[in-house]
Design a binder for these strands. Structure first.
Lengths: 201, 201
DNA sequence: GTCTATACTATGATAGAC
DNA sequence: GTCTATCATAGTATAGAC
């Protein structure tokens, strides 16, 4: 995609990220692109369709990137987990505002339009859960509640676009590597045994 | 606060959490409370003031809870970190929808009304950074970038209201304890040395 | 493909009766 | 304290000229 349609998506991303979907009007979008609101409808059938395009590419792109990265990396759970985190962080670093919109404004989509992005998001989550399960089964990761750990990892990842801005001294790739380290340390099974989850009595 | 004003805050919390501030109308709020939109203005001067009340109590309450909990716990950094995480998770568990609104909709507040909640949020962040710094200085925590680690811890905590619903088998207190464990494992300095951050050359 | 003009609906907020 | 009625503005979207 290119030209004005592309510009509409880019400016909508910035506006939605800053003010939210409902906080942004078609007049705002038109003004940012340099056309009138009515002209936006030449490129998208509705405001909802703009958001649908953004959330869909946002979620599907990151899912595809992670999928591809995992395919190149063998089946060691710790390596896969590190790759998962790094790929998510790097990919979100390409379009941080898009990552914010894809997450924050998914709820503003009508159910029908939300299906595709929601499916992609769920697939990404299942990939992580699968890695964690295999790591625990292999005895590499501490035996913890998988849902809880995956939520923690997801929380770390999804927060990055909200606070991080790259510098020469700390690039997105640096951040990705640091976070991968942090996550591996978190799930890892240390030589000395720490406190365990309580077990059924 | 009690009576209708209190009900306005409660229903607004649910509505804002589900649809966002700009996605909720005064008519929606009135209908949820069981009065007309015009009657809401008897209790709050504007829609902005409702959001200001919610974000302010949300952020100040959690800050106060953490402050109080830390005062009871001595000055060991690992213990403080565990207390910090547990207190945040438990407090957000009391009003999970309020926690979501306080975070998601803070950006929708005019600058003047955002001052108080923003200050409380920043204080809470500085408390965490201080704990991390002392833990690293004491050699208890791995020597990592503090901003990065605090963002990771914050990301884990802030995500909880979005996915967790307590059950008899897994209460909010259980979640809080599990997350405290997870975070301590993440920052902790293991007996065997792992990969380090790159150092200036 | 963009414009002006406009239809129609929804919004935040106020006035004044009860 | 709540209501009905209303205002002024802003919202999404369409029609038709250029």
């Amino acid at each position: 995609m290119q030209g004005t349609a592309r510009r509409v998506l880019e400016e909508s991303t910035l506006l939605f990220a800053a003010r939210g979907f409902h906080g942004t009007s078609m007049r705002d979008i038109g003004a940012a692109v340099g056309i009138k609101a009515a002209s936006v409808y030449e490129h998208f059938a509705s405001k909802d369709e703009i958001l649908a395009a953004l959330t869909t590419v946002g979620h599907e792109h990151i899912r595809d990137q992670v999928h591809a990265a995992l395919a190149d990396v063998g089946d060691d759970p710790a390596t896969q987990l590190s790759t998962y985190v790094r790929t998510c962080v790097v990919t979100m670093g390409e379009w941080p505002k898009l990552a914010m919109v894809a997450n924050d404004d998914l709820r503003s989509l009508p159910a029908e339009l939300a299906k595709r992005p929601t499916a992609a998001r769920d697939e990404l989550g299942l990939l992580l859960i699968d890695i964690l399960r295999r790591g625990i089964d292999a005895g590499q990761f501490e035996d913890r509640n998988i849902i809880l750990v995956s939520a923690a990892v997801g929380g770390i990842i999804i927060r990055t676009p909200y606070w991080f801005t790259p510098t020469k001294a700390h690039t997105v790739a640096d951040l990705a590597a640091d976070y991968a380290d942090l996550v591996v340390a978190m799930v890892g099974r240390p030589p000395t045994t720490r406190r365990r989850r309580k077990t059924a009595t």
